[in-house]
């Protein structure tokens, strides 16, 4: 008996050894900074001098700053369009991949390539593709007799252009759905067909519940990523050739946070911005988890 508990203690000690990189990293690079940024959000800090306690000043400023609302609005606009459009596009194409049988994996490869393109390169590329006069997007629209908008300079079209750019890199979501769809047991479709279910009913009552796990996962992950879009928009609209329209409509939340912290060196204020982002993401994720409970319950009942 005591020998067994001695063994168990030895195993726990060994585990501590194996876990030590993560434990140290968690303390130093996750938990520590998380608390430190909360503290910094109540200070005035320029990264050179010592942080100076200013109470809730940063949060009062947050409520007054029109650019907070602007950047949060831009980011929400993007998220609300990007996430469902990506999911719909990926699901549509994943269904086509399944329907294409043995050709599916080949096309999966082709559609995934944009997702390995570096975001900065994507930003540069879309700056040119979306160019109002000579960009490929408007050239393509012209083929259909549509006179495309000035995607990169008309304030009303900058964000839709960014949404379009985001859709191009939908490959990861596609790969997840393709794998999920191929995991749906064929017998379920056979049974549904015997019950006289038509194609829509089979999709609605067999496919959707069976891939609801993948749908939920991509919903959460894509939403969190959308709130943190940075590299592509920063590349396109910030730098030496900043235009006022781009700086306004392309001001996504993390771009604003980055500029406050590392361009204006207002790190206390940027920390308050970071905590607002953290709370927004947390609330949205929790809401999605609650939503998913109904989802999962529904699947269980069927």
């Amino acid at each position: 008996m005591s020998r067994r508990s001695a063994l168990r203690r030895a195993e726990a000690r060994a585990a501590l050894g194996f876990l030590s990189p993560w434990l140290v990293g968690f303390a130093v690079f996750t938990a520590g900074p998380l608390l430190a940024s909360l503290w910094l959000s109540f200070t005035s800090y320029d990264a050179i001098g010592e942080p100076r306690w200013v109470g809730a000043d940063n949060y009062r400023e947050l409520a007054r700053d029109p650019l907070v609302l602007k950047s949060l609005g831009n980011t929400l606009f993007y998220t609300v369009l990007h996430v469902p459009l990506t999911m719909a596009l990926a699901l549509g194409l994943a269904s086509l991949l399944v329907a294409a049988g043995r050709w599916g994996p080949l096309f999966r490869t082709v559609f995934y390539v944009p997702a390995v393109t570096p975001p900065v390169a994507v930003g540069v590329l879309f700056l040119l593709l979306l160019n109002g006069q000579s960009g490929l997007v408007n050239r393509a629209l012209r083929l259909f007799g549509v006179d495309g908008p000035q995607w990169t300079s008309d304030p009303a079209w900058i964000k839709p252009g960014i949404v379009l750019m985001g859709l191009w890199s939908f490959g990861t979501t596609l790969v997840i759905y393709y794998a999920a769809l191929r995991n749906v047991p064929e017998q379920l479709y056979e049974a549904a067909r015997l019950d006289g279910a038509n194609a829509w009913q089979r999709f609605r009552h067999v496919t959707l519940p069976m891939i609801s796990g993948a749908l939920f996962f991509t919903l959460v992950v894509n939403t969190i990523a959308s709130f943190q879009v940075f590299a592509e928009v920063y590349t396109m609209y910030f730098g030496t050739a900043r235009t006022s329209a781009g700086a306004e409509e392309g001001l996504f939340y993390v771009v604003y946070l980055f500029r406050q912290a590392f361009e204006f060196l207002d790190m206390g204020y940027a920390s308050a911005l970071a905590w607002l982002l953290f709370l927004v993401i947390l609330l949205v994720t929790l809401a999605q988890v609650r939503l998913s409970r109904r989802f999962v319950h529904y699947e269980g009942r069927r």
Binding site: F29, T30, G32, P33, L34, A36, S37, L40, I224, F227, Q228, V254, L257, F258, A261, M267, A270, S271, A274, W275, L277, F278, I281, T285
Partner: peptide, 10 residues
Amino acid sequence: MLPAAVTLIP
């Protein structure tokens, strides 16, 4: 799930 932006400054 923790956004990288939150721990960036510390």
